[in-house]
């Protein structure tokens, strides 16, 4: 009984670290390309988040399942092929079922292949942990990534377009700050949000470095 409880606790912890304490965007600063590029609106951020969640979850599960079969020297190439295959599936699905979203996200869907978050989770977690824990970890990280994208998309859409999920918030007299949906706005919004999070998280927990290069 105690053992089962400990196991559940472990799984719950694997799941929850991705949501906040090791959040990929705000605490690890991973996967910056899509974070900046597609967060022009809530819908775009959400779609990208879901696509990444799918790829991350499937790739982590597969890597955890086959980790003993892959020779150490070619593991990275193997992981990349697995990730690229799931990205192809996600891309074809989006193109077929949601052509408008697929068009809005453009080349950033195939670029999920090189999202450092996915490779980092495969390499540092799924390759050393059993399958169920890797699935919990991937789900937590994916959801953590997705809500970050939705938050940034919300801020940029609200100020850049005066709306949220296409519903007008500020009324007709609001003059949209176009800069917010242009590239410059992406950098500045993320910079300010990171600064605010640092401000409120105390000195020991401030994030100053990205975990990828």
């Amino acid at each position: 009984m105690a053992k089962a409880l400990a196991k559940e606790y472990e799984l719950g912890k694997d799941f929850s670290v991705g949501l906040w304490s090791e959040n990929p965007i705000f605490r690890q600063i991973l996967g910056m390309c899509p974070t900046l590029a597609v967060t022009t609106s809530v819908i775009n951020g959400f779609s990208m988040g879901m696509a990444t969640l799918f790829v991350l979850f499937m790739a982590s599960t597969t890597v955890a399942a086959i980790k003993k079969l892959v020779p150490y020297q070619v593991r990275l190439a193997g992981y990349v092929v697995i990730i690229a295959s799931y990205v192809t599936i996600a891309d074809l699905y989006l193109k077929g079922s949601f052509p408008a979203i697929s068009k809005a996200l453009g080349p950033y869907v195939p670029l999920i292949v090189v999202n450092c978050l996915i490779l980092a989770r495969s390499e540092s977690f799924a390759a050393h942990h059993p399958m169920h824990r890797s699935m919990a970890d991937a789900a937590g990280m994916g959801i953590g990534f997705a809500w970050g994208l939705v938050l940034l998309g919300g801020i940029r859409e609200l100020f850049g377009n005066g709306s949220l999920i296409d519903y007008k918030i500020f009324g007709a007299n609001y003059e949209p700050m176009v800069i917010m949906i242009l590239p410059a706005g992406a950098f500045i919004t993320l910079g300010i949000v990171l600064g605010l999070i640092n401000q409120f998280s105390g000195k020991e927990k401030m994030v100053k470095e990205t975990s990828c290069h």
Partner: peptide
Amino acid sequence: TPKALEGVAITLIVAGLLALAFM
């Protein structure tokens, strides 16, 4: 630099200004 902005945060804000210039 303000303590909370040190590192990545200020770099992103500067990158935003650079992007403005490149616009």
